[in-house]
Amino acid sequence: MRIRLFKEFIIEKLIFLSGIASILFVILIFVFLLKEGLSFFKEINLFKFISGKHWYPISEPEQFGILPMILGSLLVTLGAIIFAVPLSIGAAFYISEVAPGKIKDILKAGIEMLAAIPSVVLGFIGMITLVPLVKNVLHLPTGLTAFSGSIMLGLMSMPTIISISEDAINAVPKSYKEGALALGATRWQAMYRVTIYAALPGIIAASMLGIGRVIGETMAVMMITGNAAVIPHTFFQPVRTLTATIAAEMGETVYGSMHYYSLFAIGIILFIITFIINITADMVLHRKHK
């Protein structure tokens, strides 16, 4: 009797621990980031950090302006969205509404495979195929551009967007579609005005999660976008993203220097951006369930 109660108690506590572990990790990560990054903001004004146009962390005098990187990240992300979101939604519709059974299975397997390719491999492939292609086709001085990064990142975010959108489309009751068709709507009208409409919150959330993945991606962008910390004016010039800056410079900083702390400060900014995106996606998803 007592042993049984003890067992129950242990199991209950273990499950509780697993349950709160992820939240705990997030809090710990955030606290750690703040601890390392906040001391930086004692020296450098936050507004100056965000709006500064020059990133010379080891020059004399050093300058910490991450505006080019913020714009770089946003530009690459925006490009990836424009490329990936419509394509993914189209793919999700094809898979869930149009494709016959066998093609559907093949496509779904393919999408899962795409999700399983490590980003460094995608970056590598992008570097030897996409980058020269962009350079030659568009007659640019270099193919290492925001445009190339957008396409590669778009590819990377597609599996997320497709599979979650497809779930949302499948969750639309069949009776809606039947109702629309019975009223004399064409297949496309039923899809466009009823099914998309009912699945929209899920599709938006899927896109947001895809965007979250794009903003946080590091390896592939670092290899493809050229990493020039200048304010971008077009899609077809090299940019540097927030993530690439951290990854590229962390190994070379002196522990405890301003440069070292500035990278953590970038981490905080990045964390806040992805946090906002995830919260927004969450809110959209929850509105659907109400």
Partner: peptide, 12 residues
């Protein structure tokens, strides 16, 4: 036209 067994108004 057709009216179904379970009422199926669109979520509009």
């Amino acid at each position: 036209g057709m009216v179904f067994q379970k009422p199926n108004p669109f979520p509009k």
